[in-house]
Structures are given as C-alpha cells and as structure tokens.
C-alpha cells in the first residue's frame, strides 16, 4: 500500500514552530500572560483597581518614592474578593475586606479581584501587583539574570 508523505522544509517548520511559540506566549493561548497592576494613591486618597483572579502575585510598594514592605502581604486574588492595603503611621498592611468597603468603592465583580489602597498616610503610596505568565518562563527561573 502506498502512503502519501507530507513533509515541510526545515525553514518552514522552524517558521511555524517559532510563530506558534510567539502566539502561545503573545496571545496568552495557555493563559492570560504576565499581569501588572499598579495603584497610585496620593496622601489621604482611596484608589482601587480590578485584577484577574490569580494566585502567585508578587507585591512591591513605595511610600513617598521609598521602597516599603507590605505587612501580611496577600498574594492570592479570587473572583469577587476585595483586598485592602492600608497605609497608616507610615506602615502598609494588607487584609481581605470582611466588612463594608470604603465609601466610593464598589464591590469586585465575580470574575475579578479588586485591590483597594486606602492611604491614611501623609505621603503618596504606590502598590504594584505582578504575576509572571501562565507558562512559567523560564522554568524554575533559570536564565533569570
């Protein structure tokens, strides 16, 4: 029995494979890709932003441009939850909202989490939540320079 054999040249094979990898990473075919959410709040202000419900966020923050740590950092956001980061007496603390949200802030929708920065300090606060891609490139953080 004769079989028809379909073969691609190495050039086309490489082009297709390369474009598939670019599409998988670029279009987030296997996930939403890396996410960055930054919330800036001036002194006395309350600001909020919605974010995808993901775990494994890394958090960085500044008070008046100086790097600051967030006490009790929460790195998981599920749909419909509100995560509050409060600045008081020059310190940042995070917790999930269990009671009413601050005035002017609506509840998070079911398909998104919400990060709310309540700045009770007398300096500007900036909080950044980041995730890497769905496919963890590089694996085990190799080639991370």
């Amino acid at each position: 029995m004769s079989r028809t054999k379909f073969s691609l040249s190495e050039d086309w094979l490489a082009t297709i494979a390369g474009l598939i990898i670019v599409a998988v990473i670029g279009l987030g075919v296997l996930g939403p890709g890396p996410q960055t959410v930054t919330i800036n709040a001036a002194a006395g202000e309350i600001q909020s932003k919605l974010a995808l419900p993901l775990s494994g966020w890394t958090v960085s923050a500044t008070i008046d441009g100086q790097r600051a740590t967030v006490e009790g950092t929460l790195t998981a956001l599920s749909g419909g939850t509100n995560l509050i980061i409060e600045c008081a007496a020059g310190r940042l603390r995070s917790h999930y909202a269990v009671r009413a949200l601050p005035a002017g802030v609506n509840d998070a929708p079911e398909d998104r989490g919400q990060i709310v920065v309540v700045n009770g300090c007398d300096a500007a606060v900036s909080v950044t939540y980041r995730t890497s891609g769905a496919i963890v490139w590089p694996l085990f953080n190799l080639f991370g320079r």
């Binding site: 990898i21 990473i25 670029g26 890709g33 890396p34 960055t36 891609g133 496919i135 490139w137 590089p138």
Partner: peptide, 16 residues
C-alpha cells in the same frame, strides 16, 4: 503588539 513583560517571556523562550 507585545508588552515589555511578554518580550521578557519571549526572550526566555529563545534563550532556551
């Protein structure tokens, strides 16, 4: 078309 984060991911991919 690609954010800086995506370019970083693609850089990792081609380095591999």
């Amino acid at each position: 078309a690609f954010t800086p984060e995506l370019v970083r991911e693609m850089s990792s991919a081609y380095q591999w």
